[in-house]
């Protein structure tokens, strides 16, 4: 049997698809444009904006900061998120149902508000160093992903496996580390990747938390655009996109992308 699609549906679907994919091509085009300003369609072809990235040291240092923040922030989020997801699933019947929603709040609160309140509380009141503040902010930002994705993995975990291990003489913590964790590792990896990408691409929170001498790559891109408005920004964006696509390709090849959406 063949299902016939309504012509209007095909048109709408095509438009949405174009809207989704077009910015990628515009950025790609703008990045190779042989002009001193951002423009599309590109005029001429050059790779000099890509080499330009590496000549501006601020891009390099902020990229390193971004990677460090993403790594440690995600690590911290997982450190809190995995036990939280475990508790939320293991004791689901005994815990109030609103509790799991608390861990999604950072997604619901506008990031600007989150960034501002973090600056107010952590930077000003506690006086923590910029790097630590950024790390905490990003950990908070990506915590919902950690809890949700690891939680999805735990939701299909059969807890009688854990009880079996305990009955065989394995203490509870060791059981968690040697029996539960290996069986939710796919979820942990997926959570790490999602959280890492979210952190790398974040602007709003970083905007408030970056300070003298320390900035992240997206903030540097923003600053560069305000100052120069040249195709370097587009070429950095292309590299960021390639990084994301690369990571996604690895996820797809190893776990399958459906993993991130289930």
């Amino acid at each position: 049997m063949r299902t016939t699609l309504h012509p209007a549906l095909i048109v709408i679907a095509s438009i949405i698809f174009i809207i989704l994919i077009a910015p990628l091509f515009i950025i790609l085009g703008a990045a190779v444009s042989d002009t001193n300003y951002l423009t599309f369609p590109p005029q001429g072809f050059t790779m000099r904006w890509f080499t330009n990235i590496f000549e501006i040291s601020a891009f390099r240092t902020t990229a390193i900061t971004s990677l460090q923040i993403a790594f440690f922030g995600t690590f911290l989020a997982l450190l809190i998120g995995i036990p939280a997801a475990y508790a939320l699933n293991r004791f689901r019947i005994r815990l109030p149902s609103w509790l799991s929603n608390v861990f999604v709040l950072p997604i619901l609160v506008p990031e600007i508000v989150l960034g501002f309140s973090l600056m107010k509380s952590v930077t000003i009141n506690l006086g923590l160093p910029v790097f630590a503040t950024l790390m905490l902010g990003h950990a908070l930002l990506v915590l919902p992903y950690a809890v949700r994705v690891v939680g999805a993995s735990l939701a299909s975990f059969d807890f009688s496996i854990e009880e079996a291990a305990i009955s065989l003489g394995c203490p509870p913590l060791k059981t968690f580390l040697t029996v539960v964790l290996p069986n939710i590792s796919a979820g942990v990896i997926a959570a790490f990747i999602l959280a890492f990408i979210t952190s790398i691409n974040d602007v709003s929170i970083s905007l408030f938390l970056t300070g003298p001498g320390i900035s992240t790559l997206p903030i540097q891109i923003l600053a560069h655009m305000e100052q120069f408005f040249d195709p370097t920004i587009a070429s950095v964006s292309v590299l960021l996109m390639l990084l994301t696509v690369g990571v996604m390709a690895i996820v797809e090849a190893t776990l399958g992308l459906t993993f991130l959406t289930k």
């Binding site: 059969d158 009688s160 496996i161 079996a164 305990i166 009955s167 065989l168 203490p171 029996v179």
Partner: peptide, 19 residues
């Protein structure tokens, strides 16, 4: 504590360690 009780348990859904 459960892990010190020394009891062999067989579950309905087998509960084998998948890994």
């Amino acid at each position: 504590a459960a892990h010190t009780r020394d009891i062999g348990l067989v579950f309905q859904n087998y509960a084998l360690f998948p890994h």
